[in-house]
Amino acid sequence: EADPRLIESLSQMLSMGFSDEGGWLTRLLQTKNYDIGAALDTIQY
């Protein structure tokens, strides 16, 4: 079963217009401990 923190973070990022095609966003959020800010910083640079 998916981590509730992942579901919450992923749904927030999907609502911002990101896609999780191929699961890349799920993996990114997992490596950033479900921190949306850290994930966005990684995507920006």
Rank of each mutant, 00 (worst) to 15 (best):
E21Q: 10
I36F: 05
L25F: 02
L28Y: 03
S19Q: 10
Y34W: 05
L25E: 00
L14S: 07
Y34Q: 02
I36L: 08
L29P: 00
G23D: 04
L6W: 05
Y34I: 02
E8N: 11
D20G: 02
G23Q: 07
L10M: 08
L29W: 02
T31E: 14
L10T: 01
D3S: 07
W24P: 00
A2F: 12
L40K: 04
D35Q: 06
E8Q: 11
W24I: 05
D35M: 05
T26M: 06
Q12T: 13
Q30I: 15
Y45K: 15
N33I: 05
G22W: 06
I36Y: 04
I36A: 04
E8P: 08
D41M: 15
I43P: 02
L29S: 01
M16G: 02
D3N: 10
L14W: 06
S9W: 07
L6D: 02
F18G: 01
R27Q: 09
I7D: 08
I43W: 05
I36R: 02
Y45I: 15
Q30A: 09
S19Y: 08
L10D: 00
T42F: 15
E1C: 10
T42Q: 15
A38I: 08
T31A: 15
A38Q: 10
D35P: 01
P4H: 11
T26D: 02
E21S: 10
P4L: 11
G22E: 08
G17Y: 03
R27W: 08
L10I: 08
M16N: 03
L6K: 04
G17T: 02
L28T: 02
L28C: 06
P4F: 11
M13W: 03
R27P: 01
S19A: 09
A39V: 15
T42R: 07
S9V: 10
A2L: 13
Y34L: 04
R5D: 05
E21R: 09
S15R: 14
S15N: 12
A2Q: 13
S9L: 08
Q30H: 11
L6A: 07
M16P: 00
L28I: 07
L25N: 00
S9R: 06
I43H: 02
T42G: 07
I7S: 10
T26V: 06
E1L: 12
R27C: 09
W24S: 04
G17C: 04
E1Q: 13
T26C: 04
L10G: 01
S15H: 09
T31W: 14
E21D: 12
Q12R: 13
Q44E: 12
I7L: 13
A39C: 08
E8C: 10
G37T: 14
I43L: 12
L25K: 00
I36W: 07
G17W: 03
S11Q: 13
Y45W: 10
N33W: 06
L29D: 01
G23L: 08
K32S: 11
L10Q: 01
G22C: 13
L40V: 07
L6E: 05
Q44W: 15
Q30D: 05
D20V: 03
Q44A: 11
G23E: 05
R5K: 10
K32N: 09
R27F: 08
T42H: 15
F18T: 00
K32C: 14
E21H: 12
Q12P: 00
S19I: 10
L14E: 08
K32G: 05
T26K: 05
G17K: 03
A39Y: 03
T31D: 13
P4G: 09
F18V: 03
L40E: 02
K32P: 01
D20M: 03
F18I: 05
N33S: 08
Q12V: 14
L10R: 06
D41L: 15
A38P: 03
G22D: 12
Q12I: 15
L14V: 09
M13R: 01
Y45H: 15
G37K: 15
G22I: 04
F18E: 01
S15D: 09
F18K: 01
A2T: 12
Y45N: 15
Y45C: 14
S19V: 11
A2H: 11
L6H: 05
A39R: 00
L29N: 00
L25I: 07
E21I: 11
D41N: 12
Y34N: 06
S9E: 02
F18S: 00
N33P: 02
S9P: 08
D41K: 15
D20W: 02
S11M: 11
I7P: 06
Q44G: 10
Y45L: 15
D41R: 15
Y34T: 01
R5M: 08
M16F: 09
D35W: 04
E1H: 12
E1I: 13
D3M: 05
I36M: 07
Q30N: 08
T26Y: 05
G17M: 03
I43F: 05
S15T: 10
M13A: 03
I36P: 03
S11C: 11
M16T: 02
I43S: 02
R27V: 09
P4T: 11
K32E: 07
R5N: 07
G37N: 15
G22A: 07
A39T: 13
S9M: 08
R5C: 07
M13N: 00
L25C: 04
S19E: 10
A38S: 09
G37R: 14
P4S: 11
E8K: 14
G23V: 02
I36Q: 03
I7Y: 13
L14D: 03
A2D: 14
S15M: 13
T26G: 06
L28R: 00
N33Q: 10
S11N: 13
A38M: 10
L6R: 04
I7F: 12
S19K: 12
L28S: 00
S19W: 07
T26H: 04
L40H: 03
Y45E: 15
T26F: 03
L40G: 02
E1P: 13
S11G: 12
A2M: 14
G37M: 15
D41H: 14
M13Y: 02
M16H: 05
G17L: 04
T31V: 12
D35S: 10
L25H: 00
E21C: 13
S11E: 12
L25V: 06
L29Q: 00
S15F: 08
D3P: 07
L14A: 09
L40R: 04
Q44Y: 15
Q30K: 14
G23I: 02
W24Q: 05
G23A: 05
M13E: 00
A2C: 11
L14I: 11
N33M: 10
T26I: 06
I7A: 12
D41P: 02
Y34V: 01
M16K: 06
E1G: 13
